[in-house]
Design a protein around this nucleic acid. Structure first.
Lengths: 341, 341
DNA sequence: GTGAAAGCGCTAACAT
DNA sequence: ATGTTAGCGCTTTCAC
């Protein structure tokens, strides 16, 4: 019961390998009788052409590599889902890698993908990469003519197709919404201060304050990392003076903020309003349900995959200019914010 | 800036391809001077051996295929995370596929993986596959000597290594816990009635009732599918008579049950206790926090990947008997159940 | 120390 | 209608 090859089949029927190949592929050059015999035998023996050989021959393997920073984050899972869907519809498989926000792991993975492993690559940068602004590995990919699409966390240092969220607007809109519901002192809590996405949201927040004649206060900004204790940071924040709204820059942050506030007997949204990011199940089922910015993860994934596949198909013809698609967010009003005035 | 090959390098230095190959691989057969020159040039030109060629040569590509039924389910994401971790530590990459609970998609994916695409395969069966008990595609994989490990949703029809959760015990233990906290009328709600996992949990539930001298009531069993409206089903259930505990067979079911109950002004756990499955963020952050059965998803992933890699390494030597590892669950007591009497 | 040749499994252009 | 040859990119004997 060993893996059977064309050679075996050819030997069995005492024909040449190419005859066997043609017979199996239903070539009209081969006599019906022989074709039938060979095909029957091939089927019986569960013959399958060796993919590795085909890949080498075609210089393509209908596979795309995806690198996401964190698979335990619902947004990225949604994107992955969208990518897989479109890839699958187009006959591609995905090899998915997790950078775990590490520059090293991301670079190594890119180097691996940059050796004929895949037809194209999709990446959302690790936070460390965005912080260091080191994108050599991407240059290699591009240099080797491997189609690349960046999504969500992108870099201006890399020229390629991109799909991003309108994070600036999202930051602006949610801040404006707080203002419109009567909140004055708006804090912002971010675990992704170094990422493009985090910065954009922050800038949108600042601009909204400015446009409303509210002065920006440094002490209302809480940037934290895994090492930090959010409880402590929150206690500090709430002791600085009254805070009546908090913008959490990702889903889990907003949920944890809600939890902490509740445990300290703040009423949400009466005392403090909260808006989070990523429309996941978490935001939906928590009490009170969180008002969130939906980034349409699945849609982003679909768009990204489509763009990559388009690029793969146009590979030879490099007339196709790079595109950056911006996906608008939606603010889903739920119960963690007050009603409009 | 085209992809550079050994041939190009050989031509550039006017040496043979094999010399170039040896030089780049640091063979002692080659003079230091030449080695240095060639290696330097290779580096400059960003030369990387073509993976497809190597794969064909080595009949291995250090890649493992993973098929999960549903990537939007936190349990499977956790498993995936564990698999990726171990695979990565051992120099393997994973190509991940989603069956979406469809028999067809699963079979097609298996057929694809069964053609030299991967060194081994990890699968958790789609519900449809478990229901139909059709496992031909797995037989093909096995027939072609491709190492296979099944996890969580497994089939007795397939002889291979398996990693499963002690779902029977989990069903038993959680039911017993309800009983021990004074609940008498215990309902069970399952979206996975056709899966091995669902059946096992159900059997554990029944056995616990039996051992406690409580008669099993058919009308306390709610099996539903995506098409069904859980709200309606719940209304039906609650109108049958008093129900003081509900066992939800997956995370989202338990959470939705909680939501529905709260909206109908039942108090949890005073009126109705709830236990769910899968220790995800959802169960943790919902109010009240759900008592859940933790299946240790990440650990299962790690175990599965380790077993597969072991199998891949032992491929030649088929003395290695198949193993089924059973992972015990833990009941995490939180606030959706009453205190022990 | 360097090169020629074979071969991984397959396909396709080119004979016969 | 069938076979021969070459080649995808690489490594690895085995000659020289």
């Amino acid at each position: 019961m060993k893996k059977i090859t064309l050679k075996d089949i050819a030997a069995y029927f005492d024909v040449s390998i190419s005859t066997a190949s043609k017979a199996i592929n239903g070539s009209h050059e081969i006599s019906e009788a022989l074709k039938e015999k060979i095909q029957k035998y091939a089927k019986e023996m569960h013959y399958k052409p060796n993919r590795m050989a085909l890949n080498l021959l075609n210089k393509s393997n209908r596979t795309i590599g995806v690198i996401v920073p964190n698979i335990l984050n619902y947004f990225f899972v949604q994107v992955l889902y969208g990518i897989e869907k479109v890839a699958n519809e187009n006959g591609y498989n995905i090899i998915s890698c997790i950078s775990n926000e590490s520059f090293d792991k991301e670079s190594k993975t890119l180097a691996f993908l940059d050796s004929g492993t895949v037809d194209g690559v999709i990446v959302s940068l690790s936070e460390e990469t965005q912080e260091k602004r080191k994108v050599a590995a991407f240059m290699d990919i591009l240099g080797n003519q491997i189609p690349l699409v960046l999504f969500d966390r992108v870099s201006d240092l890399v020229s390629c197709d991109k799909v991003v969220v309108d994070d600036y607007e999202a930051g602006y809109t949610s801040t404006q919404y707080f203002l419109d519901t009567g909140c004055k002192t708006i804090a912002i809590i971010s675990p992704i201060a170094h990422s493009s996405v985090g910065k954009l949201r922050f800038n949108g927040y600042k601009k909204a304050l400015e446009d409303n004649g509210i002065s920006f206060q440094e002490n209302l900004v809480v940037n934290y990392s895994k090492k930090d204790d959010l409880d402590v940071l929150m206690a500090l924040l709430m002791n600085c003076g009254p805070v009546d709204a908090i913008l959490g820059l990702d889903e889990i942050t907003a949920v944890r903020v809600l939890q902490i506030l509740k445990s300290k007997n703040y009423r949400v949204p009466e005392d403090v309003s909260i808006i989070g990011f990523t429309n996941g199940q978490l935001s939906k089922y928590v009490t009170p349900a969180l008002t969130t910015v939906s980034q349409h993860g699945k849609y982003i994934g679909e768009l990204t995959a489509k763009q990559l596949i388009k690029r793969i198909k146009h590979k030879s013809n490099d007339e196709l200019p790079f595109e950056t698609k911006v996906v608008k967010t939606s603010l889903l009003i739920r119960d963690s914010t007050k009603k409009l005035l």
